[in-house]
């Protein structure tokens, strides 16, 4: 039996659609609830980011509980930036005890790129070690070898960047994540299909599910900002030009069109097992994107 609805879908061989929401800066969760209600029946799972870009926010775990309460399928993103191994293990126990079993294991952005630059960066573990930590806990013991009264059972995923700056080193890490037990990968934003095809040629030898990540661009300015300030992301000049060519106020519509075009192509070519849509603050356009990408009704 599958551990979670997401795992069941991943194993079904059907095209998987996930998206993500960023929790609010503050305790007002009405926006999260609005987006969860809007999206929960249109996608297979909703990720919640963990202080994305090292900007302090409402916790991923809290928003995952809201998704669960409202009948959605959450993916808890956990980074190693803010918690040592005691806190990471406790987080997994708590999530599992409340029915949150999909976990995306990430190293996390540097503290320096966020809004609390003076904070102590933790990084007691890295993403590979975090994946192994969960597998260890599933065997009934904690990292120190002590017995757990009630072991968690999770569907664990990781991230990979198909357009990384130096792919050879990135693939060494990818191999280690697969070995550590990652069942699925949600990639960083894909903007270059040739690079993604090359990555899939390599990745398809492994028994893991790859969901291609797509960032919905909203303007040429946003794309340029990502190039200058968002770790690892490089939006190609052609796409920036395409966004710059539309009249003011139409950037987001163009971004939706671009993402839909990419998604249709990877689906037509059968390149990977699904997609992960990152609307970064524009979650309301996800239904429109799903329609444009011909993904309505594809979900469970």
């Amino acid at each position: 039996m599958a551990t979670s609805l997401l795992e069941e879908k991943l194993l079904s061989g059907e095209f998987v659609v996930t998206t993500e929401i960023g929790p609010p800066k503050g305790a007002d969760v009405s926006g999260v609830i609005h987006h969860v209600d809007l999206l929960k029946d249109m996608v297979d799972a909703i990720n919640v980011t963990d202080h994305q870009s090292s900007v302090m926010r409402y916790p991923s775990l809290g928003a995952c509980l809201l998704i669960k309460e409202r009948g959605g399928e959450p993916v808890l993103q956990i980074t190693c930036r803010d918690r040592n191994r005691l806190a990471l293990q406790a987080e997994v126990l708590f999530a599992y005890s409340r029915g949150i079993q999909n976990i995306l294991c990430l190293t996390g952005d540097s503290v320096d790129v966020g809004d609390h630059k003076d904070a102590k960066p933790v990084f007691d573990l890295d993403s590979v070690q975090l994946l192994r930590m969960i597998r260890t806990m599933e065997s009934g013991v904690d990292m120190a070898g002590n017995q757990l009264a009630g072991a968690p059972k999770c569907c664990i995923g990781a991230s990979v960047h198909p357009e990384a700056d130096f792919m050879e080193a990135q693939l060494v890490k990818f191999d280690k994540k697969v070995e550590a037990g990652a069942q699925f990968f949600q990639t960083q934003g894909v903007f270059d299909l040739a690079a993604f095809r090359r990555f899939m040629q390599y990745a398809s030898q492994f028994d893991v599910k790859i969901l291609a990540g797509f960032i919905v661009l909203s303007s040429a300015g946003m794309a340029r900002y990502m190039n200058s300030s968002v770790p690892g992301i490089t939006v190609p000049q052609e796409l920036i030009d395409e966004l710059a060519a539309v009249e003011k106020g139409k950037g987001l519509a163009k971004g939706v069109e671009i993402a839909a075009r990419f998604i249709r192509t990877i689906r037509e070519e059968g390149l990977c097992h699904g997609v992960h849509i990152m609307a970064v603050g524009n979650e309301s356009v996800v239904p429109e994107l799903l329609a444009a990408a011909e993904l309505v009704g594809v979900h469970r």
Partner: peptide
Amino acid sequence: KGILNGPCAGPKKGHCE
């Protein structure tokens, strides 16, 4: 980040995020 199992996904043009 002082991590032990390879690079994160952050570098651009060979440089740290």
